[in-house]
Design a protein around this nucleic acid. Structure first.
Length: 366
DNA sequence: AACGCGGGGCT
DNA sequence: AGCCCAGCGTT
């Protein structure tokens, strides 16, 4: 029952033994209302937990579930991941985004085999040292796998902190992040760390959401500064917006019979390590590049044909792709550069290709 | 400290 | 049609 005339409470005034602490509220809520049946829960296997935490970086639960099941079925343990070709790993990551995560996951598996005897490291420091694992991810893994009382700090936690403790400012700024790490360490539960960590994440993902948080269901409501002062919409503070540039590029769609030429992209940069259509500057001479680099013989009398352009939005820029279809009469594969292969048009759906590239090819096949 | 890196859900 | 996210590595 909500009492009338409840005084506005702030966290530092709640050090009363009768009132549950921040962490106690979260632990109780997690046990009663949190999520308990996600595919990576109810296990202490650090490998399974690790894979889930990497997939969940910047990626929502609903998007991860299918990828997680396929990935674990193909790479059931560290050894199988370490032994796998990187192309196989990328194939299982295609469409999930942030492909450096997949490269780092594979690299870390090799490191574990070579430097940790194939056993997932046991300490926060060693876990943190692996590529792709930062402070927060290392803490989450050690909490779920080993029960270690370590603080996490991600986007959801920052939002919960900003509202509950009334923290002003851009939560992406370094100074605010540093301050929040101190709060995270101060508030971390010394017992039932699994429920606390999962509860903190679940609260941010399901209750303390960005747009319209469900404050009436929130276990922190009584002590929440934003709620009690009517500042839900103002916290966390918004970061100054910057305009995203627009870029354009041209892609070659070399068609030979029922196959299309694809090329491995450089390991860094956009879609790093993924197979894709060859990318050239918009002003490039398509015919010249095609003959010189891919060493194909073009069909006589067939000019490059512009295909419908594709728009793709990234966080930091928007991209217009102008695909050019080119009919190939003869391949001369022995003369072509390495890192190139031909993909059957019937295999596009299952191929590890960037989303807009897949769209181009699927339009082509109808 | 700022930037690069994807794709999707939410409003 | 924007906005932002279960971050991390690089510069």
């Amino acid at each position: 029952m909500i009492k009338k005339h409840r005084p506005v409470t702030t966290p530092h005034l709640r050090q009363n033994a009768a009132m549950p602490s921040f962490s106690e509220n979260i632990v109780r809520w997690q046990k009663q209302s949190g999520r308990h049946d996600l595919p990576w829960q109810n296990t202490r296997d650090p490998y399974r937990i690790w894979v889930s935490e990497i997939m969940l970086q910047q990626t929502q639960v609903s998007a991860v579930i299918g990828y997680y099941a396929r990935f674990l079925a193909r790479f059931p343990h560290i050894a199988s991941l370490a032994a796998a070709p990187i192309d196989d790993v990328m194939q299982h990551w295609a469409g999930l985004g942030y492909y450096a995560r997949a490269r780092n996951l594979h690299k870390a598996a090799v490191t574990i085999v070579e430097q940790f005897g194939g056993v997932f490291p046991r300490t926060h420091e060693d876990v943190w040292s692996l590529p792709g694992i930062g402070r927060s991810t290392a803490a989450a893994i050690c909490a779920f796998a080993y029960g270690e009382p370590l603080a996490i700090l991600d986007g959801n936690v920052k939002r919960v902190f900003a509202r509950n403790f009334g923290i002003e400012g851009d939560i992406r700024a370094k100074a605010i992040e540093d301050a929040m790490w101190l709060i995270a360490e101060r508030e971390v539960s010394k017992k039932q760390i699994e429920a606390y960590t999962q509860g903190l994440m679940d609260l941010g993902a399901t209750i303390c959401t960005r747009g319209t948080p469900s404050c009436l269901l929130c276990p922190l409501r009584d002590g929440c500064v934003a709620y009690n002062e009517g500042r839900i919409a103002d916290l966390p503070g918004k970061s100054p917006k910057k305009e995203t540039p627009h870029r354009q590029t041209k892609m070659l769609v070399l068609i030979s019979a029922n196959e299309v030429l694809i090329e491995r992209r450089p390991p860094t940069g956009i879609w790093g390590g993924l197979w894709s259509l060859p990318e050239v500057a918009v002003e490039a001479d398509v015919m010249a590049i095609t003959k010189a680099k891919y060493r194909v013989t073009l069909s006589k009398g067939r000019r490059p044909r512009p295909l419908p352009e594709v728009e793709h939005g990234f966080t930091h820029y928007s991209l217009t792709i102008y695909p050019m279809e080119i009919a190939v009469a003869k391949r001369n594969d022995h003369l072509a550069e390495p890192g190139v292969m031909w993909l059957n048009l019937d295999d596009i759906a299952g191929a590890a290709l960037p989303a807009p590239v897949k769209k181009i090819l699927q339009r082509l096949t109808g």
